[in-house]
Amino acid sequence: MTEQETVEALILAVGGRPDDVRAAVDRLGAGPVAEAVVAELRFRAAPPADLPEVNVQLDLVHGDRTLGFVVTLSGKGATADAGQDPDAPMWVSYELADLVRAVYGPSGGRAGHTRRVELRLGRDESGPPNPKAYLVKLEPVSRAVHALFGAVDPAEPDLGDLAVRYATDKWGGLHWFTPHYQRHFSELRDEPVRLLEIGIGGYEQPHLGGGSLRTWKRYFRRGLIYGLDIFDKSAHDEPRITTLRGDQSDPAYLREMAERYGPFDIIVDDGSHISGHVLVSLRTLLPYVRPGGYYVVEDLMFSYFQGFGGSPTDLNSPDTSVGFLKTLADGLHYEDRPGLDPAQARYFDRHIGAVHFYRGVAVIEKSANAEGSLPPWIPRSGMPPRPAQ
């Protein structure tokens, strides 16, 4: 079983009873499970930028087995290696199954009650007590452990803060999208979502880009994140992030990809921004968005650039991104349009419940649009004159 499959199995297991988690650990193996959880903690931890290196001994207990990891936290981030550091100033112990539930489970069900903490700083020091010197040594240890515990029991981070942390331009630079996303996606952030983003960034450079994928991974703490790019971006593969290589303008590839990895709760198109590509992706992939999910088209300003298949003058052309999206407003009211046979309605008309436009981005809600038209006794050719007063 791959690391990605192990993580997905754990995310699904924590939706059940505590015994289900322990059974999943037994089935998957305590070693692979511990490695996956520690990798997630490393990713989530956000040590202060001025923190010197501090080692924390992390012991994970499952039955009669203890798996030890030396977690090193510093201003550069967090690393972890299997083993023991007898000189670590802080030792932390968790029941492995409870830590799995705390890390991958719904926020209301986090369990940290099996955590044991032992401060070993200064335990073997000889000589008279020196409280001031002791507190100086304790300060970085406390900050390091705070960063580690914050990765286990995090306050829900703001999406804009995460965008800045992982260097994506969805906030604080070229665009200001994250408040809109937080408004629409917050109800899903505690769910085991599947999110696909088209466009990973960095163009042909394999190690560049990936900031958005990591932003989504941190925001959706139980989510599986997929990134599609025309270039090889496999350098960004990690637990809960899978990169795919393909062309967003190729319907056959998109269908094959979505059949394998979907359906998705959220699709974000931040790809080529070429109107023809945007429309192919939307037409092909919307059926692979779950009811209640979202399809997002970013950077709509390119719809007005001729070099991207747009037009600065023909603002209603259905061949441009914005022009086509405007037709969705008519589709919302297809049952009320005289002369239109509802049986001939487009897939978009019948399966889109709302379209939200913001500067540079549109958020489409996938849901059944079948509330029915106005009753037939309401006149379609104008309201009758009001009686004289």
Rank of each mutant, 00 (worst) to 15 (best):
L374W: 03
D319L: 13
H356M: 09
P375K: 07
A368Q: 15
L374I: 00
A354W: 03
V361Q: 15
L315E: 02
I378H: 00
F357K: 02
Y358N: 15
S317D: 15
L325G: 06
F324W: 14
F348Y: 11
A329F: 11
S367W: 08
G331T: 11
V322P: 01
V363A: 09
F348G: 02
P375L: 07
E335T: 13
Q344V: 05
A354D: 08
S321G: 12
H333A: 12
F324L: 10
R359L: 14
I364R: 05
G323N: 06
A362C: 15
T313F: 09
G372L: 13
S373E: 09
A329D: 07
K326E: 05
S317T: 09
P318C: 13
T327Y: 13
R350Q: 10
P338W: 00
R337N: 04
Y334I: 01
D314P: 07
Q344A: 14
S373I: 01
V361H: 10
A370C: 04
Y334P: 04
V361N: 11
N369C: 05
T320W: 15
E371Y: 13
H351M: 11
D341K: 08
L325V: 01
L340S: 02
R337V: 12
L332V: 04
H356Y: 15
V361P: 05
G339A: 10
N316W: 01
Y334W: 03
L374K: 00
H333I: 05
D336N: 15
I352T: 08
D314N: 14
L328F: 04
G331F: 13
E371R: 15
I378P: 00
P312I: 11
V322Q: 09
R346Q: 13
A345L: 03
P376D: 10
V361L: 13
E365F: 02
R346K: 14
N369H: 08
N316V: 02
A362K: 07
E371G: 15
A362T: 14
T327K: 13
V361R: 08
S367G: 11
T313G: 00
A329H: 10
A345W: 01
Q344G: 10
P312V: 12
G323R: 03
